[in-house]
Amino acid sequence: MGVDEADLIRRSVGGDESAYELLVEQHLPSLSSYVMRMMANAAEADDIIQETFIRLWTDGYKYKPGSAKLTTWLHNIAHNLCIDYFRKHNRLIAEEGEQPDAAVIGPEENYIRHSLGRHIQGAMMAIPERQRSAIIMCHYQGLSNRDAASVIGVSVEALESLMARGRKKLRNILTLDWQEE
């Protein structure tokens, strides 16, 4: 058991940079894993990860340890920043639309798919953001369904619906990809 996280947050809010540094160290791997899978573009992901941690420094006093885990709180900030970014750049994908096709993934990415990871990344970027976020949080991040639902701001039933639709689309895209090759 390491240093008490609540104490680190309290010290960080008080301006203690060493406490803040420890918090960054603890949460950077998980948060970068989430944001990088949400954004796919390294530069955009960098900006959002940085902004999320700046919020921890400037708005850390808003975090209430009793109401949620710090990782859930940080995921919530990162999720909102990602969605805002896509909205600002008109890149939101409609949730109730047709099955996304290969063109959504981008022509250059079609040429550089030299690994399975690239396939998955392309497919992930082709599904609507909230579905992607739900799948990332439950599959990769290890968040509970309740925590993931609270990050997205939906009920657990709605979260399950988002994930089921997202996974179905992923299966369809990936099956199409491999049939083409």
Partner: peptide, 27 residues
Amino acid sequence: LDGYLDEYVTRIPAGLGEKILSGLPMP
């Protein structure tokens, strides 16, 4: 599908931790 999803791995960008710490707004 889970097998495929596991193939999608990410790495923390080099120097990102330092960049975060050096980019903190000053008091």
